[in-house]
Computed example of a mutant assay.
Amino acid sequence: MEIKQGIQRFYMLDGNKEIGEVTFTEEHPLVLSINHTYVDPHYRGKHIAKQLIQAVVDLAVKEHKTIDPVCSYAKAWFQRNESAQAILYKKKP
Rank of each mutant, 00 (worst) to 15 (best):
L13I: 15
K17C: 07
I67S: 03
E21A: 12
A86S: 13
R44K: 04
T37V: 08
V39A: 03
K90E: 06
M1S: 14
I34T: 01
W77M: 05
Y38W: 14
K92E: 09
A86P: 10
T37W: 06
H42A: 13
A74R: 10
Y73N: 03
V22G: 05
V61M: 06
A86D: 13
P93R: 15
E82L: 07
R44L: 02
Y38A: 08
V70M: 12
D40K: 12
H42F: 11
K75L: 02
V22F: 08
D14L: 13
G20F: 05
I3F: 01
Q5E: 13
L30R: 13
L13P: 11
C71L: 04
K50H: 15
H64K: 15
A49P: 06
F78I: 08
V56H: 02
N35T: 05
K4P: 06
Y43F: 08
P41S: 12
H28S: 04
I3H: 09
V39H: 05
V31F: 03
S83A: 08
V70Y: 03
K50T: 15
E82H: 14
K90G: 03
I34S: 02
K65Y: 00
G15F: 07
E27V: 14
T23D: 07
Q51D: 03
V22C: 02
H28P: 08
N35I: 05
H42W: 13
E2T: 15
H28I: 13
E27K: 15
A60G: 01
E82P: 08
Q79L: 06
E82R: 07
V31N: 03
V56L: 07
Y89A: 03
V57D: 00
Y11N: 07
A84Y: 09
F24G: 02
K91M: 08
W77E: 06
E26C: 05
I67F: 02
K91V: 09
N35H: 09
A60L: 00
D58N: 10
F10A: 06
Y89C: 05
L88M: 05
A55D: 05
A49T: 04
L30E: 15
T37M: 06
L59A: 04
M1Y: 12
F24S: 02
A86K: 15
I67H: 04
W77Y: 09
F78M: 04
P69G: 06
K46L: 08
W77S: 00
A60Y: 02
D68W: 07
T25C: 12
Q54V: 06
N35Y: 04
K75R: 11
N16H: 15
K17S: 08
V56R: 11
Q51S: 11
E18H: 13
L88C: 05
K91P: 11
Y38C: 08
A76N: 13
N81F: 00
I67W: 00
I67L: 01
L59S: 03
R44M: 01
Q79N: 13
I53H: 05
